[in-house]
Amino acid sequence: MARVILQVPATAVRGSVIELRALIQHPMETGFRPGSSGEVLPRDIIRRFACAWDGEEVFSAELHPAIAANPYLAFTTIATESGTLTFTWKGDNGFAQTETRRITVTP
């Protein structure tokens, strides 16, 4: 399991814009770099990140080899209903990670 730092507000006012931030530990090996033996290291990157609010996707991103190690993504969404935010990262070599956070939306 990769380590993750998520910043999600615990509460939000309905209709307000909230910022969500996600940082995950991952080497993001590009697939272009030679290793110490001279052989090109195989690519090992996160390909896709998505955030769903109660199952409905509110944000997604495709990641490519030029993205730095330990990718950090900050994005905004509109607070709708109290529920669960699900963050998923999927990548090479079967990498998959899911994190969830509760958020309470007040009228």
Partner: peptide, 13 residues
């Protein structure tokens, strides 16, 4: 910002 500082991943570890 601790939420953006990748060093915090190691601190967490």
């Amino acid at each position: 910002d601790d939420a953006a500082n990748p060093g915090m991943l190691w601190v967490l570890d």
